[in-house]
Amino acid sequence: MLLEDFLALMVNGVALGAIYAMVGIGLNIAYKPTNVFNLAQGEFVMLGAMLGWLLLTYVGMPWVAGTLILLVAIGILGGFEERVAVAPHFRADSHHHGWLISTLAFSIIIINIADQVFRADPRFVPPIPGFSLDTIFMGPLSFNTHQVAVVALVVASIFGIEYFYRHTLTGKAISAVAEDRDGARLNGINPLHLTMLSFVAGGAYCALAGIIAAPLLLASTSLGLMLLVKGFMAMALGGVGSQWGTLIGGIVIGCIESISSILLTTGYRQLVLLAVVLLVLLIRPHGLFGKAPGRTV
């Protein structure tokens, strides 16, 4: 393999990995105050991509306006999901992980409605304005500016999220709810508001992931499940709750996938990824950067 080819694959892998990391971070956002993984978030990414096509390509709206509309719309959908599929389980105080089934059911509903509306063809979504998909050569490196934008956006968003959790009152309140729900209530914090807010934010963040991923991956209704699994792998490798870990996990997944794409066919590629994740989880059950929760009796 030529150095140029290898570097091109690595660049592609890092860009893909950044997208996977965004999905994983979206899962983390909704998880933090709720301890619930929203399995419908893969479909939120898909909706971000498909609505991106609808608003930007089909309707022809300006990028920023279209993106804002779909972030709000999918954020609201996330909040709605929290009301119908997650909040009832909190009220029932059930220990049976009922939310796994209800969020999965929600995702089945979304993908099948989307299938009816959009049909299965892949669609083109334009890159972020000011960036392009044209290849730039720089010594042995080749890349496009949209790839750079995606990676930069993920890094910036992680800084933003960490800043939010550490330095804003709402962010601290979310940390407080995650640590001690009753204790937070005694300080005047309503956990239900923050649970809802986190689902809205997780939804919007995934929608953003969808619209910036679409130019690289093409928008199609089958995108959601694939990205949910890859996003989960990124998060599981990095460690639940660790945004930087998730980014590294995503890049590892992206690079393995990218490099193996010239050596292996689709099935083997997925098999290798699954094997890597199973192996890491066997050796380090809480990921590369995660912490084991304390035991309670």
Partner: peptide
Amino acid sequence: RRIFRRLSVADNLELGLARM
């Protein structure tokens, strides 16, 4: 002693004023 152990002392006090 139900304080928020992962947050700083000042953050804990700030949360005491949350929503006031």
